[in-house]
Amino acid sequence: MLSSHIMLTILGVIFGLAVSAGTFAFLLVIGVVPRMVGKSNTASHAIFYENAIILGGTIGNLLSVFPDIRIWLGSPLLIVYGLCAGIFVGCIAVALAEILNTFPIMYRRANLKMGLSFVMTCMAFGKACGAFFYFWNQMGEG
């Protein structure tokens, strides 16, 4: 009995490290952190970005593995978390799309020469409205 618990603990740690290494390697390959640092002109805070991503991943892991953990700030913290998670996922999606050259191909096929920033803003606004509608109507509660 004890040996099976020890074996499961060891395997859980190994597989968790493998998944986190893959996740952070993916973030490194698509260049999320360097792009954020470059766009915001905050090169002196690059370590802060990296630490925030690692801390967010660790806390998210703990909350997903131990769902009984209670957070004392409730709704205000949930709002901040949702905003930060949405920004992070948006940054990953845009970085991945840029790596795959999705936007230049789409713009060239649609013959768009002007207003590219407006198109990007409309896509982001539409995504935010769709997410708000989804959560407001509690569509994820099966």
Rank of each mutant, 00 (worst) to 15 (best):
A21H: 05
A21D: 08
A21G: 11
G22N: 01
G22L: 13
F24D: 05
A25C: 05
V29P: 01
G31V: 04
G31K: 07
V33A: 12
R35F: 09
R35A: 02
M36K: 01
V37T: 09
V37A: 12
V37I: 15
G38Q: 13
G38W: 03
G38V: 13
S40R: 12
S40W: 11
S40I: 14
T42I: 10
T42W: 07
T42A: 15
T42M: 15
T42R: 15
A43G: 10
S44L: 03
S44N: 15
H45M: 14
H45N: 10
A46D: 03
A46L: 08
I47S: 15
I47Q: 08
Y49P: 02
Y49N: 03
N51D: 10
I53S: 02
I54P: 06
I54F: 07
L55A: 15
L55K: 03
L55F: 14
G56S: 04
G57D: 13
T58P: 01
I59R: 05
N61A: 06
N61Q: 10
L62N: 03
L62R: 09
L63D: 07
L63K: 09
S64M: 12
V65W: 04
F66G: 07
P67I: 04
P67V: 04
D68M: 10
D68V: 13
R70N: 04
R70Y: 09
R70Q: 12
R70L: 10
R70S: 04
I71M: 07
W72H: 14
W72R: 10
G74Q: 11
P76W: 00
P76R: 02
L78Y: 07
L78T: 12
I79D: 03
V80A: 12
Y81H: 15
Y81I: 01
Y81P: 00
L83Q: 04
L83S: 11
L83G: 07
C84F: 15
C84I: 15
A85Y: 04
A85D: 07
A85M: 04
A85C: 03
G86A: 07
G86R: 03
G86S: 02
G86K: 07
I87Q: 03
I87C: 14
I87G: 13
I87H: 03
F88C: 09
V89P: 01
G90C: 12
G90R: 00
G90H: 01
C91V: 07
C91K: 01
A93L: 04
L96S: 08
A97F: 12
A97L: 14
E98A: 06
E98Y: 08
I99L: 14
L100R: 04
N101G: 03
N101V: 06
T102M: 13
F103P: 00
F103T: 11
P104F: 08
M106I: 11
M106N: 06
M106S: 03
R108N: 06
R109N: 10
R109G: 00
A110N: 13
A110H: 09
A110V: 09
N111K: 13
L112G: 00
K113E: 09
L116M: 09
S117P: 02
F118S: 11
M120Q: 11
M120K: 14
M120Y: 10
M120E: 05
C122S: 11
A124S: 06
F125M: 15
K127C: 09
K127V: 10
K127F: 14
K127D: 07
